[in-house]
Design a protein around this nucleic acid. Structure first.
Lengths: 201, 201
DNA sequence: CACGTTATGGACCGAATCGTCCACAATGGT
DNA sequence: ACCATTGTGGACGATTCGGTCCATAACGTG
């Protein structure tokens, strides 16, 4: 299944043929069509699995014990920037590719994307609320709006990364985002512990 | 040419056939291949034209007279959120689709995307520097980093919009971005004149 | 008008597309 | 060991793909 995901991921939906999938997996086309219903069904299954993985990974990174929520948020943002910047092949995110290619015409893909984005926003909201309780983020800020803002930055970095923007760009975006987050009044300053300060200049 | 752009835009590169283009434009395939070199050449030309339009439009919106730069920046961000939110068909941005579908395998597409993003960042940087000179934005902030940050948000809203996220989301992201921009110390507060405050609740 | 040049458009080609079909193997129950 | 059921895989078909080719039309020049 991961093999199929790799094909769709790399070549897109229209760009991936069932013959290619059959060859890559070693399965015959009869088996392929017998086990799944067809190309689109297979794609939706792959996409669903991918979205679940993405959400799980974010959950692991963000929804830790109710302690250090702000640091986890910063780490999440930095990790995204670093991961995208290190993706020199511009492989990108399958969900983003799926949404870009198909959500206009395929309602199921659009719905899958919407739900995944909402799930990610929920995770971010929970983390931000925890950071507010912990006195790291301004408790008067709208946690949901803040989460949507952060998610926009994250997805934007993904989109820019696919365009070949270099790692420094993404670092700038990530660090600026962190720096601008509304800290508690008595505790304004830089965004928690910064690991690699040097390379951005 | 706009007809061809519409096809590629809506169906993607792999999803658009030369026959469809011939039918839509009324041209014969011989003419098509005679005037342009082939499918990919035609696509690159369409994409180039689109990128130029996008950059021009941003330039018109952002690079006004050296007056009200901060207001123009806010208007630009809000206009993007509003435009994406109103795009119920999830038509999205051709450049984003092109980058998502092809930049991994087509160096020219990746280069086109990178250059366009850099152009947009330059426009944003110039506007932010103007806002700093005008005393609206913190003059000590790195204008380039701020521009990349704003561009990330803009492209992220685009990506989220394609996923079917509703207009309130995008409004939240836009307003939060504007609110968090580093105002000059003596002039902190809400982000300039807000036109449509009501509908976000 | 005559003529060389260029643009046009659709028939045509081989390759590739998605999906079907069926002979055959594997499996499990008795 | 026997058989019914399920799973397998590749040949096959109808269609569509990108691209070529050429008879014809349109055009500029004398």
């Amino acid at each position: 299944m991961a093999t199929v995901a790799g094909l769709f991921w790399s070549r897109g939906y229209a760009g991936t043929s069932m013959d290619a999938i059959a060859t890559a997996t070693g399965l015959g086309k009869g088996s392929l069509y017998g086990a799944f219903g067809g190309k689109r069904d297979l794609y939706l299954r792959v996409l669903g699995g991918y979205c679940a993985e993405v959400t799980d990974a974010a959950s692991v990174g963000l929804a830790g014990p109710d302690d250090g929520a702000f640091a986890r948020l910063c780490a999440h943002i930095r990790s995204a920037a670093q991961g995208i910047g290190a993706d020199h092949a511009h492989h990108g995110c399958l969900l983003a590719k799926a949404a870009a290619e198909l959500s206009e015409h395929d309602h199921d893909v659009a719905e899958q994307a919407r739900r995944t984005f909402e799930g990610l926003a929920d995770l971010l909201t929970a983390d931000i609320e925890a950071a507010q309780r912990e006195g790291e983020l301004d408790a008067t800020a709208d946690a949901g709006a803040l989460a949507r803002f952060v998610l926009s930055v994250l997805r934007g970095m993904e989109a820019l990364g696919k365009g070949g923007v270099d790692a420094e760009w993404l670092d700038d975006a990530a660090e600026t985002t962190i720096r601008l987050l509304p800290r508690t009044a008595h505790d304004a300053g830089t965004g928690s512990t910064r690991s690699g300060e040097a390379e951005t200049g």
